[in-house]
């Protein structure tokens, strides 16, 4: 393993993991306060990407069900059939503290699962109790401490992480965030509405920049020539085409698009006509 210290690790978490944890937390059995599970993902040198998770079976009311390693292995095999590149990278638990159960499971996994996958297993703590009105998500690395011959305990040291998104995940997450503002439930856009939504976004960005310019002119914000230059660079980056060339380009594109629309309508008319004729015969 190229990584000799957890300080070199960079941990990236995909939002689907946290959403799955939240959802499973809401579905837990009535008498359970926390849920636990396993984290899966991809390891590339010093970068650990957490992409998915399994939830442990909920213990039943009559007592804790012992964790069945065989069943877990079967589940993992099922998973590997679809995602052959994913390995186990750690464990997660919910609540505001890592407790004994979580610790026991983490220790079990570190022993049983091959350490060639990831040198420093991660533990993710998701605070579904929302202490301080905030869902704290904390990633830690698990170590055992003690002296040779006498193992004295385990320690979880926090590690920095970041959220990672594929482009599709980014669009989905932005859509979800936008929906929050309008009450949390929303239909999916079609193409044109999407362009309008983006232009609204551009509008907001322009507002922010204009506010900055006004502030600086009024003297409220200190003038920073570096920011000013980046702004001017950004504006200069808009390609400045001659009016006539631009008009030509517009016209050509418009003509192409109109023609395509015409063809489309033609085909649809043809379809309707064909159907009518067929049924008459």
């Amino acid at each position: 393993m190229a990584v000799s210290s957890p300080l070199q690790l960079s941990v990236v978490i995909h939002p689907v993991v946290v959403l799955t944890i939240c959802d499973s937390y809401e579905r837990r059995n009535e008498d359970i306060e926390k849920i636990h599970g396993t984290l899966l993902g991809k390891v590339e040198k010093e970068r650990i990407e957490i992409r998915n998770c399994f939830i442990d079976d909920n213990p039943t009311a009559s007592g804790k069900k012992k964790f069945n390693l065989e069943e877990f292995q079967r589940l993992f095999d099922l998973h590997q059939r679809v995602y052959p590149n994913e390995v186990i990278v750690g464990r997660f638990s919910t609540g505001d503290q890592i407790d004994d159960t979580a610790l026991a499971m983490q220790a079990l996994f570190s022993r049983v699962i091959e350490s060639s996958y990831v040198a420093f297993p991660i533990h993710l703590l998701v605070d579904t109790n929302l202490t301080d009105s905030h869902m704290g998500i904390q990633a830690s690395v698990y170590h055992r401490y003690g002296v040779p011959g006498n193992d004295n305990g385990s320690i979880f040291t926090p590690i920095r992480y970041a959220m990672g998104y594929y482009p599709e995940e980014m669009s989905a997450s932005q859509l979800f965030q936008r929906n929050l503002a309008i009450g949390g439930i929303a239909p999916v856009h079609n193409d044109m509405q999407h362009v309008i939504a983006t232009s609204t976004k551009i509008d907001e960005l322009l507002d922010e920049v204009l506010k900055y310019v006004e502030d600086v002119t009024a003297g409220n914000t200190p003038f920073d020539s570096k920011i000013g230059r980046s702004l001017s660079d950004a504006i200069m980056a808009v390609p400045q085409i001659d009016q006539s060339v631009f008009k030509d380009m517009m016209n050509n594109s418009t003509q192409d698009l109109l023609m395509v629309t015409y063809l489309g309508s033609l085909v649809r008319t043809q379809l309707a006509l064909a159907e009518k004729l067929n049924t008459i015969l």
Binding site: H134, G153, S154, P158
Partner: peptide, 15 residues
């Protein structure tokens, strides 16, 4: 910055 304030070290000793 918020999570830095809340990050905590957890240790569980056995002796």
């Amino acid at each position: 910055t918020r999570d830095v304030a809340n990050a905590s070290v957890t240790y569980i000793g056995s002796v």
